[in-house]
């Protein structure tokens, strides 16, 4: 499922456990809709960014099709969170 929505997962420069996720352009709107529907809590909604929380992790969702998942143990945890959010 991740292949359908995710173009790239990268650790953020200078941030030990934060990851940036680039959504595939063609399916980004569908992916964002699913993510917003599945997160535990949406804390803030603005025109360009949504702040959410899932499994205790802070998540930033940008309308441009990028996500940040903060303080993840490793890339496997990021993938596991994304699997849940995109299901």
């Amino acid at each position: 499922m991740l292949e359908e929505y995710i173009a790239k997962i990268e650790k953020l420069c200078g941030a030990k456990n934060d990851y940036v996720i680039l959504l595939k352009y063609s399916s980004k709107n569908e992916a964002i809709e699913k993510i917003l529907g599945n997160v535990d809590k949406i804390e803030l909604k603005t025109g360009v960014m949504k702040k959410a929380r899932h499994r205790g992790k802070e998540i930033r969702i940008f309308t441009t099709g990028k996500l940040i998942i903060k303080d993840a143990a490793d890339e496997d945890e990021v993938k596991s969170i994304l699997e849940e959010l995109l299901s």
Partner: peptide, 9 residues
Amino acid sequence: HETAMMLDS
């Protein structure tokens, strides 16, 4: 990074 991504928007 959050600032940069918001500016990107």
